[in-house]
Design a protein around this nucleic acid. Structure first.
Lengths: 139, 139
DNA sequence: AGCAGGCATGCAACAACAGTGCAAAGTTCA
DNA sequence: TGAACTTTGCACTGTTGTTGCATGCCTGCT
């Protein structure tokens, strides 16, 4: 993906494109799985942890990435699709956490069924993570 | 609930009943919501954090409590029902996390629908947390 | 009763992660 | 060029999860 395309992707979400943010976005696009802050940190070794943290925070606030809380206990991040609004029940999908390799996968095609919550519980977001063994670890 | 009944509850799960464990169990039974280690710690002020941590760990390993990872990022615990085996898809239910008061509720009556995972992804457990606003915070 | 072994508890310490404050550097725009 | 604002980097803090080790308690055997 060209720099121009990356810039457009940021601007579509009203995020001011900077060198740092382009690098982070490029890394996110290249990932199959959801990544943690540490993953990002060990990939972009010359950048500061705080900056990466704040970059992800900005991305999240502008709906470019979503957060996942899996059984590992720490936060992971994954790119949203272009038209995603990150709202329940339309734009939410299932995630899979492999307890062996500790990777977290997005399953965008598996949308989350609407649940019949008790009265006055107003949903805005859903964290749905199936834990188990992924194909690479099953063998 | 009498001490005897609490002891029985522990023994039914093959957990050696001690004073500490009875106190923790009693507290868990009295809670509407899932609790964090810190909650427990601030209730049982005279006990050590490590002991409480290991008590919850023991309870979890014996299927007496289950863990929930909500949007707050930290682990919460809640009692399982007597016949619960904590396995997907039968014994798993939906949780609700209120982003205002940060409480996490169990909805044992809302079981989790079986998802049609891609080939070779083997599920064992599910973490399903709906985030939003609870009745007390909605008004 | 006395003792040995095993489990539970408490203390200390550590690593990882999340988050904040502040100052320096970079960018934008007049 | 310079002022205002944004972004980045550094230093530091607090919390949580976790482990190691020493002590204490309970149990069962002699």
């Amino acid at each position: 993906m060209t720099t121009k395309e990356l810039e457009d992707k940021l601007q579509a979400r009203d995020i001011h494109p900077t060198a740092m943010r382009l690098l982070v976005l490029e890394y996110l696009i290249g990932q199959e799985e959801a990544i943690s802050l540490s993953d990002l940190e060990s990939h972009l070794t010359h950048s500061d942890r705080t900056t990466l943290y704040r970059t992800l925070k900005t991305f999240r606030e502008h709906g470019l990435v979503h957060q996942i809380h899996d059984d590992s206990g720490n936060t992971k991040y994954a790119l949203c699709r272009d038209d995603c609004t990150c709202s329940y029940p339309d734009d939410m999908h299932v995630h899979f956490y492999c307890s062996r390799c500790e990777k977290t996968y997005c399953f965008p095609h598996l949308t989350i069924p609407e649940m019949d919550l008790p009265d006055s519980f107003e949903p805005t977001y859903v964290n749905f993570v199936v834990t188990g063994t992924c194909p690479s670890c099953a063998s």
